[in-house]
Design a protein around this nucleic acid. Structure first.
Lengths: 291, 291
DNA sequence: ATCCATCAATACCTGGAGCGCATCAGTGTT
DNA sequence: AACACTGATGCGCTCCAGGTATTGATGGAT
């Protein structure tokens, strides 16, 4: 195969139609330039230049090859520049995992920030539960996760993304729906309560269990559900009341009243950003700097 | 700038993710391969591969560069193949000059032949008078000319393209228009005759002068015209009669009767193909082999 | 017609780049 | 803890790219 140096040599000669001047342009002397052209022609087994001792002309094959040579050189320069932009995180792609609930809170901010600060970076989204995200992060198929707090291996780093409060979700006709100010948790005692599944929504389950134990209130758990929006659907149908993250009030369900709740910790719901400690995606570094 | 060899090295390592195996594939040993990759990375000032002593992984920049590297290598191979096709005349372009009159005879054949035998070759047409064609051939701006016979420099080669006869062009009402069989030239004696210009249509002028002298007939030259179609227009208007090449009967003019003529030489009108002896256009060689 | 300037090709030489061999160094496995 | 695997490094050698000097051919000037 020919050499890129041979291509630049050929382009110079083809443009100057003069070996000595082309050699000057290439900061070399004429004899090695002549040899490079000969080598190129031998390599291609095609005569590119028609040269007497007095004149240099392009053959038709040379004219055709000139176009190709320029294209290859242009593309080589482009590749060198493009790879540097990738290495600085200016362009690239970030695979981001998110939990269904986070799509109402932190995910929007993340997407807006990325769009504004790193327009050249593509965000590839995947909805995954926390456990699957941590697995994917470890395997390298995910660059960044939006997950509920959970113990992780030492190879993962994390940072709080958002903290938010809990709202009581009440059927519109519920007697507590009209109350003023934060609702005391005591009012939940004995109520039909739509609880999070201890398996699929372990984080919320344990969070609420902890809160209820702290204030010593025991609602009646009538259902265990995995998804916030399933819970809201049941609230809307009058099957009970629930505690949901603030951002869930953005989901539009008819017949639901959201009411603030008096909690020991006003913002107990955490969402974390997680990524590999040995991350090598420069675009991720750039994004983390902006979040 | 990096080297194509470095690109192939990088692609091999990126595909194998294993220096020793990649080196085998490249028919070399591992140490120089490691060094080529290092040189490439230094040149780009970007880390392409993340390698511990145990594993080799592509960085995001490396993934991006792999795409570019493959593209450059593919294009280089394509360039090598394409230039060879041009050098064999399989593809390319031929600049062909033609006289206005030849567009009714040889030009059509030429275009059909080229189209059928060399579908990859583009025919670039220019209408030029013979003298300008010969000049353009000498300057190299034309590859092939369709010209009337004319003395040329030694650097031009030629070959007859077509020979054709002459027809008498008569106004429809002319008394000779109804005659049977070839018309004797004697019937032209004393007739109003539309003659070719001795300057712009020198070839036809001298051809007819020679014929009239040989048979000792002297028509009355009422006009001198450069173009066959101008002559036919005047014939059609009843301004006289004329002798025109056979192929001119393809031009549709109302009110003209074409009649064969009894000539000393039945096919005195010649049209030549002309090209440079030092032609270097392989597509032209290929075309000439087919004509 | 002769001489000279020009310009690509050739001959020869030299320094450095690239290769292979041998070895080192780090890591995962048994 | 020993070993196997694998990429990095050190070193010597070869060969090639580039430089200098020269040749050879050609077109233009006198």
């Amino acid at each position: 195969m020919f050499t890129l140096a041979q291509l630049t040599s050929f382009v110079a000669v083809a443009e100057e139609l003069h070996f000595t001047r082309a050699a000057e342009r290439l900061s070399m002397t004429q004899p090695p330039l002549s040899r490079q052209i000969q080598l190129l022609e031998n390599e291609l087994r095609v005569q590119l230049l028609d040269r007497t001792n007095r004149t240099v002309r392009l053959t038709p094959a040379g004219r055709a090859f000139l176009v190709e040579a320029r294209r290859i050189l242009r593309q080589s320069e482009h590749a060198a520049l493009a790879v540097r932009r990738v290495s600085t995180g200016e362009v690239g792609a970030i695979a981001v995992g998110f939990t269904a609930a986070s799509s109402y809170s932190a995910l929007g901010d993340l997407l807006h920030t990325a769009q504004a600060a790193l327009p050249g970076v593509e965000i590839q989204l995947q909805e995954l539960v926390t456990r699957d995200q941590l697995k994917a992060l470890g395997e390298g198929s995910l660059d960044l996760g939006l997950v509920r707090p959970m113990s992780t291996g030492a190879d993962l780093l994390s940072r709080p993304a958002v903290r938010e409060g809990l709202l009581a979700a009440l059927p519109a006709g519920h007697r507590a729906a009209g109350g003023r100010g934060p609702m005391p948790l005591g009012e939940l005692a004995g109520e039909d309560f739509l609880m999070y599944s201890p398996i699929e929504a372990r984080y919320f389950h344990e969070l609420l269990v902890g809160i209820f134990r702290a204030v010593d209130v025991r609602p009646t758990f009538t259902q265990y559900l995995a998804q916030v929006h399933s819970i809201l659907a049941l609230v809307s149908g009058g099957w009970g009341l629930a505690l949901v993250p603030e951002s869930a009030s953005l989901m539009r369900h008819g017949g639901i009243v959201f009411r603030e709740v008096d909690l020991p910790d006003p913002k107990p719901v955490e969402l974390n950003l997680v990524w590999r400690a040995t991350n090598d995606n420069p675009a991720l570094d750039a994004l983390l700097r902006h979040l």
